[in-house]
């Protein structure tokens, strides 16, 4: 049985995929399929034209040279096997789904779905990463902070493909934490990424599953930067209990959580404060 009007195009290269994308209205991109196929299998998505982008070799590249450029087709398994240019991203990849999901799921798919629970996204926020979008008209770069506009909403235009994410190598002082209801295969109830870029004297905090988009926590970032100003950016330090608690409080205060099936807003604020405090203690000792 062939459903009339439904077609599948297997992209040969990025140009070919972009051309197909711009020639068909309402086309849907397909990478690893771990989000889209669930939608299709449950009848929530009925794409009439699918463009398969999983063989676009250009998007599998991972360049690391002080500045990292990770192609959209890099899978979680590759983030674990190769050095992905961010320890926090590696930790986030480690928590995603199962081996089956990590073998198929991609960075570009996480960005394409743009769920507040997407686990790479708080890390991209904390790294102050840039999303690279390409259409037939050319490339444009969007700061991750400006990329997501709401739950499963982004500034990506229908004629654009996410080709990569880019960020400056922030060094080893970074971590990702996530709270869920069990150890394997779990959607985050709350997630947090903390990056302390000692060379650039910058702190980034990204919060996941705690609002309509991924959020930064600017007050917590400023507070932590103050601690490193005092202690010396290039030095290991042990933040005091009081400082850690304050950092946790400020991180949680930036959240805009809701009650849902996975947890209450109050619980999310609580675990964010705990995670932030622990993350600071962990990262401060890495120099």
């Amino acid at each position: 049985m062939i459903i009339p009007g439904v077609s599948v195009h297997i992209g040969r290269d990025v140009d070919d995929a972009l051309e197909n994308l711009s020639s068909v209205k309402d086309a849907t991109l397909l990478a690893g399929g771990t989000d889209l196929l669930v939608e299709i299998n449950f009848g929530r998505a009925r794409p009439t034209h699918v463009i398969v982008i999983d063989r676009l070799d250009e998007l599998k590249a991972l360049d690391r040279n002080g500045h990292i450029r990770m192609g959209a087709l890099v899978t979680y398994t590759r983030m674990l096997a190769d050095d992905p240019g961010s320890a926090a991203l590696r930790e986030a990849a480690r928590t995603v789904g199962s081996p089956q999901i990590r073998n198929a799921g991609t960075l570009g798919g996480n960005l394409g779905t743009a769920s507040p629970a997407g686990d790479t996204l708080p890390v991209l926020a904390a790294l102050d990463a840039t999303v690279v979008l390409r259409s037939r008209a050319g490339e444009r770069r969007v700061k991750f902070a400006d990329y997501m506009t709401g739950p499963k909403k982004s500034v990506r235009r229908p004629d654009e493909i996410v080709v990569a994410a880019e960020w400056d190598d922030a060094g080893p002082a970074q971590t990702f934490m996530k709270v869920g209801t069990r150890n394997a295969m779990v959607i985050a109830v709350a997630g947090l990424a903390l990056v302390v870029d000692r060379a650039r004297r910058r702190v980034g905090v990204g919060l996941g599953s705690c609002g309509p988009t991924i959020l930064r926590a600017p007050d917590a970032e400023k507070f932590a930067a103050g601690l490193f100003d005092e202690a010396g950016w290039d030095r290991r330090m042990r933040p005091t209990e009081v400082a850690r608690t304050e950092f946790g409080r400020l991180a949680a205060a930036a959240a805009r959580p809701i009650d849902d099936v996975r947890g209450t807003a109050a619980y999310r604020r609580h675990v964010l404060a705990v995670m932030a405090s622990r993350a600071l203690a962990r990262v401060a000792t890495i120099a």
């Binding site: 397909l30 399929g33 196929l37 299998n41 699918v50 999901i101 073998n103 198929a104």
Partner: peptide, 11 residues
Amino acid sequence: LVCACLVLGAA
């Protein structure tokens, strides 16, 4: 290793 239920047949 992947889940065959998450691979589009045509892909």
